[in-house]
Write a protein that binds this DNA or RNA. Structure first.
Lengths: 114, 114
DNA sequence: TTTGTATATCGCAATATTACGATTAATATT
DNA sequence: AATATTAATCGTAATATTGCGATATACAAA
């Protein structure tokens, strides 16, 4: 076996490129988009209802929440038997900054040559 | 077998949520981020050098280009024996609009309750 | 202390993604 | 025509992701 296949070769890219990809990846699934939109809508961060709101099983939602928490985009705190999740606003801004810088590259120079 | 496993249940999400996820997914790999940045930098869209510029094999780059082309973010045209790729500016703006709407959700109401 | 409720984790099945060698296709050069 | 160059496609190997049933854990209520 010469090569670790199926694995992204992150080491050949810059930290910036890998960071953009990490943030983008977490939005790359509609369930996580839906979770974040729901957390934005309910500014009070009641959360167990994510399962009934979105039509996925509880372990599946829990796994998506874990990925969002791992990147720091959401925070969770135990509230009795249930867990209260909400957006981590500082991290959200940090992420927005990084993605905007990429999305808003100067496109005016592009000659549209094709 | 009760369920198509390993497959995202896109049918339970809105078109908007799926669209956001599709665009984000394409940035979810550093190679595609690098390709787009390179296309932005060289406003003349000479392209065969993407392979030497980024350290991945030619079939791998070709596959990533295909995904970007499938979403419409880049265009390609044959130029002799080589192929010239460039950013599709209209589609880029369309994508930016959709992602910005998601990223710029009103965060001011968030109570940061956790 | 038993029972219920809510969430996380484990384990598994199935599809998706990443990467590349080998080959093909299409044009350029000799 | 024969050869070289460039990029796409095929086939395959290996890891990643998605989803969920079963189970574990942690706290609340009876």
């Amino acid at each position: 076996m010469k090569q670790k296949m199926g694995l992204a070769k992150t080491e050949i890219f810059s930290d910036q490129q890998n960071e953009i990809a990490s943030f983008a990846k977490v939005f790359g699934h509609p369930a996580r988009v839906a979770i974040l939109q729901h957390l934005f809508k309910l500014n009070t961060c009641v959360c167990g209802d994510l399962v009934s709101e979105i039509g996925l099983a509880q372990p599946t939602i829990s796994q998506h929440l874990k990925e969002l928490k791992l990147l720091g985009l959401i925070k969770g705190s135990v509230e009795g038997t249930s867990v209260c999740y909400c957006i981590n606003t500082e991290k959200w801004h940090e992420m927005k900054e990084i993605l905007n810088q990429f999305l808003n590259q100067d496109i005016s120079k592009q000659g549209d040559c094709c």
